[in-house]
Amino acid sequence: MATTEHRPPRTGEQRRADVLTRLEEDVDAWVATASPEGEQYMVPLSFVFHDGGLVMCTRRTSRTARNIRAGSGATIALGHTRDVVLIEAKAEQLAPDGLAPRAGDAFAAKVGWDPRGDEEYVFLRFLPRTLRAWREENELKGSVLMRDGVWRA
């Protein structure tokens, strides 16, 4: 694998474009939540980026769903260590029938699975509050592309 450390840092606009491409093309992300007692939990989940948020699905009884019901936010990671997108998000749980039809259709089309109608599953919607993206140390400066839910670049 070629290293990117000798490439010049991307502009904020290029990083934002790269992040949006990753959000559209990637299928899976790492999602970290915490229990009310502070016990951390991380799991990979499939997602679709729809109307400015990430939509995912998991079993109603999963630790992730329980943490979100209890008020946990989430940290979501995309990419690999040489092309990181790190998102701090507000999280909400939606019943299968609580998801907008277009979002459900987009999820099913991208992921290849439609859990709507199965009461064992719930949808999770994550609204990005802070988003950082970088490849190497030379991109750490300016890595915050979104703050308080507003794009900076």
Rank of each mutant, 00 (worst) to 15 (best):
E120F: 14
R135S: 15
V85P: 03
A109T: 09
A109D: 14
S46M: 02
G117L: 00
S62F: 03
H80R: 08
L140W: 15
A77E: 11
F49G: 00
P128T: 09
E119S: 14
R82C: 01
S62V: 02
M56V: 11
G149W: 06
R132I: 00
T61W: 09
L20C: 03
Y41T: 07
L140M: 15
M146P: 01
E13G: 03
R15P: 03
R16D: 14
R82M: 00
V27A: 01
Q40D: 10
D28G: 08
A17P: 02
A34C: 10
R129M: 09
L20A: 04
A108W: 08
N67E: 15
L99Q: 12
I76F: 05
N67P: 15
L140S: 12
S62A: 07
A29Q: 01
A153N: 08
V150Q: 15
M1D: 10
M42E: 02
T81Q: 01
V48T: 14
E24Q: 13
P115V: 02
A32F: 01
C57S: 15
V85A: 02
F126W: 04
G73M: 02
Q93R: 12
G149N: 05
G117W: 00
D148A: 10
W113H: 15
L78F: 13
K90P: 05
I68H: 08
H80N: 08
E88R: 14
H50V: 09
R69M: 14
H6V: 05
D18C: 05
T61H: 09
P36Q: 01
E39Y: 06
C57M: 04
S46Q: 08
E25L: 15
Q93W: 02
F126G: 00
E88C: 03
R69H: 14
I87G: 00
V150T: 15
A17E: 10
W30N: 06
